[in-house]
């Protein structure tokens, strides 16, 4: 039996995801969001900070697809540029959490007993802060910014990845194929990089895909509280913050802010779950 090429595996998995209606929907939405984020400057019909006081607080119209805000800025353009902010927070934060979680989890599993205990206790300690509460404490001390949001999300997510990486590593160390590699005198580094890393990474990647919606929601939430990105940077949370302040005069701002958040969380969730079902059928339906 020849080993299928990497490209063929990706193509097969993509086909499986697209074969599931929700997976296809999720994939479509994710692709759309990524494209919107990349080409935001071309898609947005107006500048995200362009003021036009004469046309302020309008409802949707052909000129302003999602209406305008209290300063006459085009809400659609702001939502489009906000996509970039959302992904700029979510992807590095989840990627960083995955990396450090894997590092800590594998170290705990392969290291000495005391190191294992110390790392796990450290992760449990971080986990003992409710995410938003921890975020608020950090923001209060170091001030709000995009970097703070990324750091907070990364720190609070590391324990979950660390725990899973540890369990996965422990299971692998005792598995038969690793034992076989050892008897064949494969070096430690070869076992680590060729055999263990890909197996651990797969599980963590699924976790990461399922984590992205929560991270997007957290960024939007912090920005909604005025503790995330700073104006005039248009985060979806900032749109909602403006909308909330004006909820009694116009419903459009809230509606315009809610649409991309719901689209993103649903899209990434459906995509992540389809990805999980394809890559790890054992996890199916675990919730």
């Amino acid at each position: 039996m020849t080993k299928p090429s990497r490209l063929a595996v990706v193509r097969r998995n993509l086909k499986l995801i697209l074969g599931n209606p929700l997976g296809a929907l999720g994939f479509g939405i994710v692709l759309l969001l990524v494209l919107v984020a990349i080409f935001a400057d071309f898609i947005a019909p107006y500048g995200y900070a362009d003021l036009n006081v004469r046309d302020r607080m309008q409802g949707p119209s052909p000129a302003h697809l999602l209406g305008t805000d209290q300063l006459g800025r085009d809400t659609f353009s702001r939502a489009v540029v906000g996509t970039r902010v959302a992904l700029l927070v979510a992807l590095p934060a989840v990627g960083g959490a995955l990396f450090f979680g894997m590092l800590l989890g594998m170290t705990a599993a392969l290291g000495a007993r005391w190191l294992d205990n110390a790392i796990m206790l450290f992760l449990d300690t971080i986990r003992s802060f409710p995410t938003v509460m921890f975020a608020l404490a950090v923001v209060a001390l170091v001030g709000p910014s995009l970097a703070t949001v990324v750091a907070v999300v990364m720190i609070t997510s590391v324990p979950v990845y660390g725990r899973v990486a540890r369990t996965q590593t422990l299971a692998l160390v005792n598995s038969e194929f690793i034992l076989a590699e050892r008897t064949m005198q494969a070096s430690f580094l070869r076992i680590l990089f060729v055999h263990m890393l890909p197996n651990i990474f797969g599980v963590l990647a699924i976790l990461a895909a399922l984590d992205i919606p929560a991270v997007i929601a957290l960024e939007a939430g912090l920005s909604f509280l005025g503790l995330g990105v700073k104006p005039p940077t248009p985060s979806w949370g900032v749109l909602l913050r403006d909308g909330y302040a004006l909820i009694r005069s116009t419903p459009w701002l809230v509606v315009a802010g809610v649409i991309p958040v719901i689209l993103a969380t649903l899209g990434f969730t459906f995509f992540g779950e389809a990805l999980r079902d394809v890559l790890d059928p054992k996890l199916r339906g675990r919730g």
Binding site: L22, P213, A214, A217, A220, G221, F224, L240, G243, Y244, I247, P251, V254, V255, G257, V258, V261, I262, T265, L266, F268, T269, F270, E273
Partner: peptide
């Protein structure tokens, strides 16, 4: 599908929409 959609809905978004 319904459960998945519920899980994905962020609380503050649901709060804002139900307030509206």
């Amino acid at each position: 599908i319904l459960s998945t959609a519920f899980v994905a809905a962020p609380a503050f978004v649901v709060a804002l929409l139900s307030l509206l």
